[in-house]
Design a protein around this nucleic acid. Structure first.
Lengths: 125, 125
DNA sequence: CGTTATTTGATACTGTGTTATCATTATCAA
DNA sequence: TTGATAATGATAACACAGTATCAAATAACG
C-alpha cells in the first residue's frame, strides 16, 4: 500500500468523516460516492493497511463484525443502536457518569462492561 | 428436549458449578467426567435448549465465541484473562468502583463499556 | 508518453463456529 | 418389558467474515 489511489483516499476519508465507527460494509457504502465501482476486497485490504499504519483502530463488538474509527482518540466508549445497528461514539465519561454523557434522545436499555487483564492464577506463572 | 439424559444433566451441572461463564468447548470438557463420550453436537443442542428454557444466558464477547452462565444473576460484568482466555464473573459494581471489586491478584490492562439502546434518529420513527 | 510494478474488482477459497443429517441408543409411559 | 419416539454421536453441511488469486487497470517513475 504505497500508491495514492482514489479508492484508498475515499476509504480513508469515509472513516475520518463518519464521526462514528464504521463496519466494512458501511465503509464500502460511504466510499462509493467518491469511488464508484469500489469492491469489498479493496475495502478490506485498505482497512487492514490503515490498521497497520496506525491510522485507524478497531472497535470490537460482542457477536458482531468489528467497526473501525480514526485512531488517536481519547478514552471513550460506544453506543450501539438496536434498530439501525449503527455504533456511536460516546464522550470520555465512564460509568456511572455515562447517563449524562449521552446525546439527547438516546435511550439506554442496557450496558456491558468487559474488563481485560490477567487473572491471579496466570499472574503466578 | 424433554427427556432427562445423563448428558443433559452433566451439561447443566457443568454450567451451574463452574462459577464463571463457559464456552461450548469448556462445557464439553467440564461435562466429560460425568458423561464420557459426550459429543460437541450434544453440547450445542443442550446449550440452545437451556437458553430457550431460560436456565442459562449468553455472555457475548467481542471477537470471540460466546460463553454461557447460569441465568438469573444480578447485574454484573466480566473479566477476560488475556493468557488463559477464561472469563470470570465480577461483582455487581459498575465502573469506577470496578477496581475495588476485583478479586485479589487480578490485574487490569483495559476495559470496555458498550451501551445498548436506541439512538435519537431511530426513536423518532 | 511509456514502462513497470502496485492496486483493483470479481470471485473462489478458507477458517471458525454452529447446525443438520441420520443411524443408533436410551428414555419413559403403558 | 416393550414400543414409540426423543436424544445422542459422528460427521457432513452451512453461514459468515475475511483472504487469496489473477487478469486488467492505473499510479509513479523516468
Amino acid at each position: 500500500m504505497q500508491r495514492d489511489t482514489s479508492q484508498r483516499r475515499a476509504i480513508r476519508r469515509a472513516l475520518e468523516d463518519a464521526g462514528r465507527p464504521l463496519g466494512a460494509l458501511e465503509v464500502l457504502e460511504a466510499s462509493k460516492g467518491e469511488a464508484p465501482g469500489l469492491g469489498i476486497a479493496t475495502v478490506y485490504r485498505n482497512i487492514k493497511a490503515l490498521l497497520e499504519e496506525g491510522d485507524i483502530s478497531e472497535v470490537a463488538l460482542p457477536g458482531e463484525p468489528p467497526r473501525y474509527e480514526a485512531a488517536g482518540k481519547d478514552h471513550h466508549h460506544h453506543f450501539r443502536c438496536a434498530r439501525c445497528e449503527r455504533v456511536y461514539e460516546l464522550g470520555g465519561a465512564c460509568l456511572p457518569d455515562l447517563k449524562n454523557a449521552l446525546p439527547r434522545g438516546f435511550r439506554v436499555t442496557s450496558h456491558e462492561v468487559l474488563v481485560h487483564g490477567v487473572c491471579a492464577a496466570c499472574s503466578k506463572r
